[in-house]
Design a protein around this nucleic acid. Structure first.
Length: 276
DNA sequence: ATGGCCGTATGCTACGGA
């Protein structure tokens, strides 16, 4: 199974890039972020013609996530509310969460808030959103079936299993995920509070698929449009794919495809894919 | 250099992004 994640920065503006990429990279599931389009205006047909089912959760102008899948997904839901109820109902006004199940693997596609600037209202919103994500994963683990008991292992913890969590996290978890981490304590996407919030989410038993294969730095998934950042490789690795232990063991490859970033009018993010 | 560049809205400027 091959799954990819890509912040496309408007699915309508990037439609040809996404269609062409899918033709060259016929992944089983493509997780999109920042679709920036209401559901009734989502360009379904080009993906249907490619053989993909589209599951979408969008809004006007901002945010928006989608799952494109070759096979139908089961148990599709959007937002935190299906598991958290009223606790996080206001966080669902921004469309940032969609999930579905394929071949026993739950795929959770996230667009984590950017946070604007350190200490701002949006920064606090980001931290609160990550706390809700932690609660969401806890609820997901508690509601999932325990694996069949055998003589060699027994897990009393409500750890979610066969879970793939991917998307634009808007957080560089390690200094090597930033081209220049100097002064990172003051930079949104790199502060200790954001990293702690993400680590707290990962404590449920999620590991970075990319780092299984690539321990070195200088590999990025986002480059600022300004200052010729891509040409100079002044990037950040903020688009991640996290796996529960069973899937982490299964993973045979994970990479960032920088090719679409070189095209005319590109998204500022590159797709990241994993093969299980 | 507290900016640069890009997409959206019913636009001629503001905002959100990261």
């Amino acid at each position: 199974m091959k799954v990819a994640t890509w912040n496309v920065n408007s699915v309508r503006t990037r439609l040809n890039h996404v269609v062409n990429w899918l033709q060259e990279n016929p992944v089983d599931v493509l997780c999109l972020q920042e679709t920036k389009v209401m559901d009734e205006s989502f360009p379904q047909q080009p993906f249907t013609e490619l053989g993909y089912h589209a599951y979408i959760s969008g809004q006007k102008s901002y945010n928006g996530v989608a799952l494109l899948s070759r096979e139908p997904l089961s148990e599709v839901s959007t937002g935190f509310a299906p598991l958290l109820g009223d606790q996080a109902i206001d966080l669902d006004e921004q469309k940032r969460v969609i999930t579905g199940v394929l071949d026993g693997v739950r795929i959770l596609n996230l667009y984590v808030p950017n946070g604007s600037s350190v200490g701002s209202e949006k920064y606090l919103y980001k931290l609160r959103w990550l706390e809700a994500l932690r609660n969401y994963l806890q609820a997901l683990g508690a509601s999932s079936q325990e694996p069949a008991a055998d003589s060699t292992s027994h897990s009393p913890l409500p750890t979610p299993h066969s879970l793939l969590v991917c998307g634009d996290f808007n957080i560089a978890l390690e200094d090597i995920d930033i081209h220049d981490p100097t002064g990172r304590e003051k930079m949104v996407m790199a502060t200790e509070l954001e990293r702690q919030a993400l680590r707290s989410v990962l404590e449920f038993g999620l590991a970075d698929a990319f780092r299984k294969f690539t321990p070195a730095g200088e590999h990025f998934s986002w480059w600022d449009y300004r200052a010729a950042a891509f040409r100079r490789n002044l990037g950040w690795r903020i688009d991640h794919i996290y796996l529960t232990p069973d899937l982490y063991t299964r993973a045979i490859a994970c990479a960032i495809d920088a090719a679409p970033r070189k095209l005319e009018q590109p998204s500022d993010h590159a797709p990241v894919w994993v093969e299980l």
